[in-house]
Each structure stands twice: as structure tokens, then as C-alpha cells.
């Protein structure tokens, strides 16, 4: 069972290639304002997470996920549903 802190670490690691300004990423880091991800980068990042955790992250939920902490919570829920 993945704990939230290891999940956070894993997601931060997946985010690093998109961290073009080399900022310190935490749960509060926002995708649009802090990381300045454009829609193409978001797409790539979502695909990376899907492959890493072997899950499907619906496009429908993305507009509500503004920071890293919210992604962690969403992924935790999806992983739990998918893999029990």
C-alpha cells in the first residue's frame, strides 16, 4: 500500500522533467502559476503518471486539480480503486 508521502515523492520525481525553472516542488506547488505548465506539458505529465502507476486519469478531473497535493489525492484514490 503506497503511503501519501511516498506517493508525493514519486509524483514530484515524475514532475522534475517539467520543472524548467528548477523550483522546489511541494504539495502547494501550482501547475499553472509556479510550474507554468502549458497544456502539452500537462498532457505529457498525465501520461507519465498513468504509465508509472498503471492507471487511467480521466481528462474530466484535470480542471479541478490545480496543485501537486490535489494530484496526489486524486492519484491515491484512483490507485486504490484500480488495484485495491
Amino acid at each position: 500500500m503506497t503511503s501519501v508521502s511516498t506517493l508525493l515523492d514519486a509524483i514530484i520525481k515524475l514532475l522534475e522533467p517539467f520543472n524548467s525553472k528548477s523550483i522546489t516542488i511541494s504539495g502547494d506547488t501550482s501547475f499553472a502559476h509556479d510550474l507554468e505548465l502549458d497544456s502539452l506539458a500537462v498532457m505529457d505529465f498525465v501520461a507519465e503518471m498513468e504509465d508509472h502507476f498503471d492507471i487511467m486519469i480521466p481528462l474530466n478531473i484535470l480542471p479541478d486539480l490545480e496543485n501537486v497535493g490535489q494530484i496526489v489525492a486524486a492519484v491515491e484514490k484512483i490507485v486504490e480503486q484500480a488495484h485495491g
Binding site: 498532457m43 487511467m56 484500480a82
Partner: peptide, 21 residues
């Protein structure tokens, strides 16, 4: 519906993602 994407023109990626559902 629930919307999801696969990598552009990548049939192997499509296969993998369909397999996850």
C-alpha cells in the same frame, strides 16, 4: 463520458492504455 488520451499515432500506447481499463 470519461475522457482519456493516448500518445499521438502510437498504436502500442493505445493497446497498453486500453488494456488498463
Amino acid at each position: 463520458a470519461t475522457i482519456t488520451r493516448f500518445r499521438h499515432n502510437d498504436a502500442a500506447d493505445l493497446d497498453k492504455r486500453l488494456g488498463r481499463l
